[in-house]
Amino acid sequence: MKVPQAGAVAAVIVIALTTSACGGEEKAQGTISIGIKFDQPGIGLRETGGTFSGFDVDVATYVAGELGYAPDRIEFKQVYSNDRELLLQYNEVEFVAASYSINDKRKEKVDFAGPYFLAHQDLLVRADDSSIAKAEDLNTKRLCSVTGSTSAENVKKTLAPKASVLELPGYSECLVALQDKLVDAMTTDNSILAGYAARKGNEGRFRLVGLNLSDERYGIGVEKGDKELQGKINAALQKMVADGAWETAVKKNFGPGYAYEPAPKIAATG
Rank of each mutant, 00 (worst) to 15 (best):
M1A: 11
K2A: 15
V3T: 15
G7R: 01
A8I: 04
S20T: 14
A21Y: 04
A21D: 09
G23P: 05
S33V: 08
K37I: 03
K37M: 06
P41F: 11
P41G: 13
I43W: 03
I43L: 12
E47D: 10
T51N: 07
G54I: 11
V57G: 02
V59S: 04
E66G: 01
E66L: 02
G68A: 09
G68N: 09
D72E: 10
D72Q: 06
I74Q: 02
I74K: 10
Q78I: 08
S81F: 14
R84Q: 12
N91R: 06
E94G: 04
E94W: 02
E94Q: 13
F95R: 02
A97F: 00
D104E: 12
R106N: 10
V110D: 01
F112Y: 11
F112Q: 04
F117E: 09
L118D: 08
D122I: 04
L123T: 08
D128L: 01
D129V: 02
A133N: 15
K134S: 14
L138P: 05
N139D: 15
N139Q: 06
K141Q: 09
L143K: 03
S145K: 08
S145T: 15
T158V: 12
A163P: 03
V165I: 15
S172D: 15
E173V: 12
E173M: 10
V176R: 12
V176P: 04
L178S: 08
D184Q: 04
M186S: 15
D189H: 13
N190Y: 14
N190R: 11
I192D: 13
Y196F: 14
A198S: 14
N202S: 13
G204P: 10
R205C: 10
G210R: 12
L213V: 05
S214T: 13
E216A: 09
K224H: 10
A235R: 05
Q238I: 02
W246R: 01
E247D: 14
A249V: 05
A249Q: 02
G255V: 03
A259W: 03
Y260S: 14
P262L: 11
A263D: 05
A268G: 07
